[in-house]
Structure formats: C-alpha cells, structure tokens
C-alpha cells in the first residue's frame, strides 16, 4: 500500500511480535497475589522514559493517587497519553515527570497551556477517538487500525497517522498505529488480590488499554473475595492475567469522584485549576504530594475524615453501579 500522506509526530510503536514475546516472557499466567502498596507498585512498574496511559477522567474514577505517587517518586521523561486529562497532566509536567504528551484532550487551566507554549513539554496532536483506536489495535496484536477520521485536517498532519488507498474500496483511509503503553493505570470499584477487576459505569478503553499495556497497575476502592468474580463473570471488566499490581486505595480518585462511592471535591479541583505560575505549582506539589508520605497520609492530613465522609454522603446515585 502506497502512503499518500504521513503525519509528522514522533510515535511510540512496538512491533506486534515484540509485544507478544514480551507478554510470553513477563506476564504471569498463574494466579498469584499482587497486593502491594502504591509505593511498591510504582517503583516496580514505572521507569523513567515510560509511556503511561490511564482511564477514566480526571474528575471521575481517575487514578489520582497513583499519579501523585509517580510524582512523589520523581519519575522523569514520561510520555503520557492525554485522553480526558485535565489537572493531572499539569501536575505531571509541574513535577518535571512528563516531557511528551499525545493529546486527545488536554485541559485545563493556564499552567499546561503555558508549558506547551514555552516548549517545556512537547505535544503531538491526535484525537480522543484516534487514541482509543490505537489502543484497540494494540490490544488486538495488530500493527494499526483503519479509521475514517482525522482525514483532511492539520490534526492528521501533526499526528503520527498515515493515509493510504484502502485495497477494498479504493478510497483513501487513515491508519493509526497500534499503541502499546509501557504502563496502564486504572482505578476500579472492586478487585481481588489476583487482579480480577470490576468497573461500574462507563470507561474510555479500560480493557483495551489493560490488554495493550506491558504493565498494569490496578488501584481499587474495595478488595473483594475472588469467588465473587466466578459467581458473576459477566461483570468482570479486567481479568487477572493482564494485571501486575493491585493496590487497595480507597478514595484513590480524589479530588475526583468514584461513581456511587464519593462525589468529586470541586473546591480542591478549582484550587488545582487556579494554578498559573511555577511558584504556585511548586507550592501545591510541596504541600499535597512531596509533603506527604503516601495516599493514607494525604487523606489524613490534607483532606480529613469529615471531608471524606461528606463526599461519600453526597454520592447518592447508586443505581447501575453494582
């Protein structure tokens, strides 16, 4: 197939066979307990230079405690998949952790916009749908996914997509390369110690990304008996063999919410969004991330029992989330 047009973005790409071989070597098939602290999970699974993806959004069921741990451990030169990403991209850049961002949606606040304009972080423009398709290709073990989007736009020219003539219709079609992240972070409602997991409500690409990633860190609101999964297997979102680390992190999506568990804390979110200057950013990181030992310490000293109970009490919509 002749390439008609090729986008200019640098891409992180793995040959499907290389990925398969990595899985054969490294992913454990036996059911072993993977419960560990967030500190252990990040130090084992996240290395400098890694490509990181996450699900769902910054404000709902996002892996915020894991992101804070990555910043606390001062990982460097990360490449992040910014889909539905709001304040955590700013925090990762502010913490000096992220140097490249694949953009689906990169909001919000002036801090991240200025970091891009100042050249402190490089962005490559894709779209939410293109990144989801890339993840699907990565999960299928195929090198690319054809899509009928991006076509004709600057988004395509600045992405890493290519346009070819489709051999079936003869029409131009856009090909997006498979994405196999080094690490996928996901916060779930329930998990067992082996890594079987349930997500209630919508998701971006939780199963696709868990399948496509080399390493998966699962943060769970609740650890449940493994038998629960066998009693109701249709509700399993992610099976254990995709998962490398399970971390029990109640309120781990804070300041975002988790459906039917606790509401988001808009006051804290507004505080993060109001960050404009480097000074404000460093002050925030010092107080809320570097200045605490771990997630439990963060909740105890920076959020507090009363606040958490109030957020939990406000999560009154339960139907559908069980």
């Amino acid at each position: 197939m002749e390439t008609i047009l090729q986008g200019t973005a640098e891409i992180r790409f793995t040959h499907p066979d290389a990925f398969r071989e990595w899985v054969r070597e490294h992913k454990r098939r036996e059911m072993v307990e993977k419960l560990m602290t967030e500190g252990e999970a990040v130090s084992r699974c996240v290395a400098d230079g890694d490509y990181i993806a996450y699900d769902f959004s910054s404000l709902t069921r996002g892996p915020q405690a894991l992101v804070r741990e990555i910043i606390r451990q001062r990982r460097r030169d990360l490449w992040i998949c910014a889909e539905f990403t709001l304040h955590e991209s700013a925090l990762l850049v502010g913490g000096g952790c992220a140097s490249r961002i694949d953009v689906g949606f990169l909001g919000y606040g002036n801090y991240i916009g200025r970091a891009v304009s100042d050249g402190r972080v490089r962005v490559f423009d894709w779209t939410n749908g293109a990144l989801a398709s890339r993840m699907l290709a990565g999960a299928r073990g195929v090198p690319f996914m054809p899509v009928r989007t991006l076509l004709g736009t600057d988004t395509l020219r600045h992405s890493g997509a290519r346009v070819v003539h489709d051999p079936f219709t003869g029409d131009p079609v856009c090909l997006v390369p498979a994405l196999n992240p080094d690490v996928f972070l996901v916060h779930v409602h329930q998990a067992d110690v082996f890594g079987n997991a349930r997500i209630f409500g919508t998701n971006l690409f939780a199963l696709e990304a868990a399948t496509a990633a080399r390493k998966v860190i699962l943060a769970a609101e609740e650890i449940v008996d493994p038998l629960e999964f066998r009693k109701d297997p249709a509700r399993t979102t992610i099976p254990y063999f995709l998962v490398d680390a399970v971390v029990h992190l109640p309120f781990g999506a804070y300041p975002g919410g988790v459906q039917a568990r606790y509401e988001l804390d808009l006051e804290h979110i507004d505080k993060v969004n109001a960050i404009q200057s480097e000074e404000q950013m460093q002050a925030y990181l010092a107080e809320f991330i570097y200045g605490v030992q771990d997630h439990a310490d963060f909740l105890n000293r920076k959020v507090g029992w009363h606040r958490l109970q109030d957020l939990a009490r406000r999560a009154t919509i339960r139907e559908g989330y069980h």
């Binding site: 304009s117 423009d125 779209t127």
Partner: peptide, 14 residues
C-alpha cells in the same frame, strides 16, 4: 510554540 494552546480535538474531530 503556539501563542495560545487549547485542549485540541478531544472527540470533536470524530
């Protein structure tokens, strides 16, 4: 080095 940067496509392109 854009003078002003916005969120980008999101799902708008789709």
């Amino acid at each position: 080095r854009p003078a002003r940067r916005f969120p980008g496509s999101g799902g708008g392109n789709e």
